[in-house]
Design a protein around this nucleic acid. Structure first.
Length: 506
RNA sequence: GCGGGAGUAGCUCAAUGGUAGAGCAUCAGCCUUCCAAGCUGAGGGUUGCGGGUUCGAGUCUCGUCUCCCGCUCCA
């Protein structure tokens, strides 16, 4: 079974065992929106807890934050999202190519001006002065046409009138550079940010956006956090939260969702030192993924060739998903772009006084940003396995098992009486009651013990504790390990510490 | 968004235009001493949704929605 065959099985397994459901399924669902079921939410929470501890607990100079999803709209002007996330798009039906409508018109204008310039040059060569050449009809016509198009473009862009935009493209007789035809779809405004309104009355109040990334909540709180927690550069602010993007195409299960959760840490550093911190976090974040059992051969760095406007270095940590190598986490050296822009737009100084160097500066930022849902999917894809397992009759059968790292498995241990009689069930229940205080423990007495083992395998429970007649006489139980199916006899007194020792490695 | 494919029980799938079924799973009971055993019973469906053709539609037809694959898009 190869990786891509696994994908469909993972998706149906997720539904069958309560990890992930399509959102609002009884109403046909909503594209690219999913709900986490009982097993899925625990897996997700274990992963985010592991991340939160790896940041805020492990590092003295990283503190947490939970900023609101709604923020003043100017935040998104400052961050560049209002411009970058707003495109009028049009498709050519023949070439199937999609273009930004404003770019098409601008290219058209540019072509006209180019034509005018060439005419001008020709005329000047023929002895006209530049002033005379500019007045000649063959030049003047192109320039005027270009000017008229520019005015109309500005009008439709300002009005946000997509029908007028389409008429403009039709009127200008713009053709597709690929197919050369004018067989266009309508112009559609693609806004990757979700819009909502502040205030209960529909036509009053301000337009707001649901945040398209969580990072800005950290940037706008930079000084609040730094001053209230007496942090000195370098220090980090960690945050876990939802973000929203109106993706044009959202596919691949929970890999690209419209509503998703990010775990971000912005690390504020002295300008000039960003490279060393960038290198540190690059390695540290890879180590974290490895520590939770993701094998090294399914992880890699992918350095960015072309950098975003705000970055001076960027890399992705990619996982080999069933549909290929894809980004799970990004580590970006964001320079002082964000804080500088917020200083500019808010008029509030975003500088830090460094007591060591006795100077004030806007700190540089190294960002680690990991998709929580992608991390969940990574662990699901990595954990899913079908393998031969022995049956009671001595043959073999396929067992489906989720080999989660014990630290992230939704259920840590299942307590099973070998059979329901002779007081085994009662003994098992009391062990379960005790384990519950410390672990996510499940109790199951239905069906043969072999079947119960397989049920726990399918949910990814790493340990099963089985109570048999020996338990009643000498107080020992067997602990059955999920992956090896090996059993070990452990005294009930030592059971808790035995189980606890198995989850190390985070 | 475009092209192709698919939607029947929780899952995998049956059902010449003629009474919607099986296996697995779930639940209850019996039986069962270590890897999906067995027996008895129960629940679960407007066949994705909405029109049309027909005496009669899961089946033919049109539309629509959702999912999958490819393209496209993705600071």
């Amino acid at each position: 079974m190869n990786y891509s065959e696994v994908f469909g099985k993972v998706v149906s397994h997720c539904k069958e065992y309560g990890f992930i459901f399509p959102s609002g399924e009884i109403y046909d669902g909503l594209s690219a929106v999913y709900d986490y079921g009982p097993a899925g939410v625990q897996l997700k929470r274990n992963l985010s807890d592991a991340w939160w501890k790896a940041m805020t607990q492990k590092f003295d100079n990283i503190v947490g934050l939970d900023a609101a999803i709604l923020m003043p709209p100017t935040v998104w002007k400052a961050s560049g999202h209002v411009d970058a996330f707003n495109d009028p798009l049009i498709d050519n039906k023949d070439s199937k190519k999609r273009y930004r409508a404003d770019v098409l018109v601008e290219d058209y204008i540019e072509k006209l001006l180019e034509k005018a310039r060439k005419e001008e040059e020709k005329l000047i060569k023929k002895g006209k002065t530049p002033e005379e050449a500019a007045r000649m009809p063959q030049v003047k016509k192109s320039v005027e046409k270009a000017e008229a198009a520019r005015i109309r473009l500005a009008e439709v862009v300002n009005a946000g009138d997509m029908h007028a935009f389409k008429r403009l493209i039709d009127d200008l007789e713009i053709v597709c550079p690929e197919s050369g035809t004018r067989n266009w779809t309508d112009v559609r405004q693609f806004n990757l940010m979700f819009k909502t309104r502040l205030g209960a009355v529909a036509d009053e109040g301000a337009d707001l956006y649901l945040r398209p990334e969580t990072a800005q909540g950290i940037f706008v709180n930079f000084l609040n956090v730094q001053k209230s927690s007496r942090m000195k550069v370098p220090f980090g602010v960690a945050q876990i939260g939802k973000a929203f993007r109106n993706e044009i195409v959202a596919r691949q299960f929970i890999f690209r969702m419209r509503e998703f959760e990010q775990m971000e840490m912005q690390y504020f550093v002295r300008p000039g030192t960003q490279s060393e911190h960038y290198r540190f976090w690059k390695e540290e974040r890879m180590r974290w993924h490895l520590s939770l059992g993701i094998p090294a051969e399914r992880l890699r760095y992918k350095d960015h060739d072309k950098l975003a406007h705000y970055a001076d270095a960027a890399t992705d940590i990619e996982f080999y998903y069933p549909f290929g190598w894809k980004e799970t986490e990004g580590i970006h050296s964001r320079t002082d772009y964000d804080l500088r822009r917020h200083q500019e737009f808010s008029g509030k100084k975003q500088t830090y006084f460094d007591p060591e160097t006795q100077e004030s500066y806007i700190p540089y930022v190294v960002e680690t940003s990991v998709g929580l849902d992608r991390t969940v999917l990574m662990h699901l894809c990595n954990a899913y396995a079908e393998e031969e397992a022995p049956t009671a009759e001595g043959g073999t059968e396929v067992r489906t098992v989720l080999r989660f790292h014990p630290a992230v498995a939704p259920t840590y241990v299942a307590v099973l009486p070998l059979v329901k009689k002779d007081g085994m069930a009662e003994a098992a229940k009391s062990i379960h009651e005790r384990l519950k205080n410390r672990f996510f423990s499940a109790y199951d007495e239905k069906d043969a013990v072999g079947r119960r083992y397989r049920r726990q395998d399918a949910k990814g429970t790493p340990f099963c504790v089985t109570i048999d007649t020996e338990t009643l006489s000498d107080g020992t139980v067997t602990v059955r390990e999920r992956d090896s199916m090996a059993q070990e006899r452990v005294s009930t007194d030592a059971l808790e510490s035995y189980l606890a020792a198995k989850s190390t490695g985070v």
